[in-house]
Computed example of a mutant assay.
Amino acid sequence: MICEEKVLAGNWNQEESISKAEEEYKRLLPNGEKTESNFLYTILDEAKTIGVILLAQLSENRGYIYDINILEEYQGFGYGKEAMKQIENVGKKLGMKKIGLHVFGHNKVARGLYDKLGYQTTNVLMEKEI
């Protein structure tokens, strides 16, 4: 998923996307799921895997959602919204007062969800091909 999004946004080209994604995950999770201050969850519906969500604790009171991915066949059924609510509860239990995330400009569905959940836009990068 991260590969497709980065390619669509023009950050990476298709040929380098897999290796770049692997580098990114190694940087974010150098010890895999045991990386300190990182919380990787599988999103389940009964026994079915629906997706994943990765929350990092950046400081005592700040968290960051590095990834949320709902499998395509389960999108649009409220799993993402519920996962976001649950990860906010996890953050509160860890003492977080704020949680940030990045969303690609072209991902209007995700942007709409985050708006509905009360996330505020803090930065906007724009680009035009000339």
Score class of each variant (00 low, 15 high):
D45W: 14
N31Y: 02
R62I: 05
Y66F: 11
S17E: 07
N38D: 10
Q86E: 07
I99E: 08
I43S: 09
V7H: 13
K85W: 05
G100I: 00
E5P: 07
G105L: 15
N89S: 15
Q75Y: 04
K85E: 08
N69T: 04
I18A: 12
I70L: 13
E22T: 15
Y64S: 10
D115Y: 02
K108F: 09
L40S: 00
A56F: 01
D45V: 14
D115L: 04
G10V: 10
Y66V: 04
E15G: 01
S17R: 04
E5T: 05
N123T: 13
A83L: 13
M126P: 05
V103Y: 09
H106C: 09
A83C: 11
A83D: 12
R111K: 06
L55E: 02
H102Q: 14
E36G: 00
K34I: 10
I68Y: 03
N123F: 09
E60T: 14
K48Y: 11
M96F: 02
C3F: 02
K34S: 14
L55Y: 03
H102W: 14
H106L: 14
A21Q: 05
G95I: 03
F104K: 13
K26D: 08
I2K: 09
F39R: 05
N107C: 08
G112Q: 06
E129A: 12
L40R: 00
K98L: 10
Y66G: 08
N31Q: 10
L29G: 03
F39E: 05
A47V: 14
F39V: 00
L44Q: 01
S37G: 05
K128I: 09
E4G: 08
E88A: 03
K81F: 12
V109C: 07
Y41A: 06
L94Q: 04
T42E: 12
S37M: 14
E73Q: 12
I99S: 08
K48T: 12
E72F: 13
N107I: 04
I18H: 12
E23C: 04
M126I: 07
N11W: 08
G118S: 11
L44C: 07
M1N: 08
N38H: 15
T122D: 11
K116S: 11
I50A: 01
A110I: 06
Y25V: 03
G10W: 01
E4V: 06
I130A: 10
K92V: 11
D67E: 15
E33Q: 01
K97T: 14
L29F: 05
I70Y: 09
E36A: 00
E72C: 12
M1D: 10
K48E: 14
L54F: 10
A9L: 12
A9T: 03
G95Q: 03
L117N: 06
L71S: 13
Y79Q: 02
Y114R: 03
Q120F: 00
E129W: 11
M84H: 08
Y114F: 09
E16Q: 09
N123D: 14
Y114V: 00
N31W: 01
I65K: 07
V52K: 09
Q75T: 07
I65Y: 01
W12G: 04
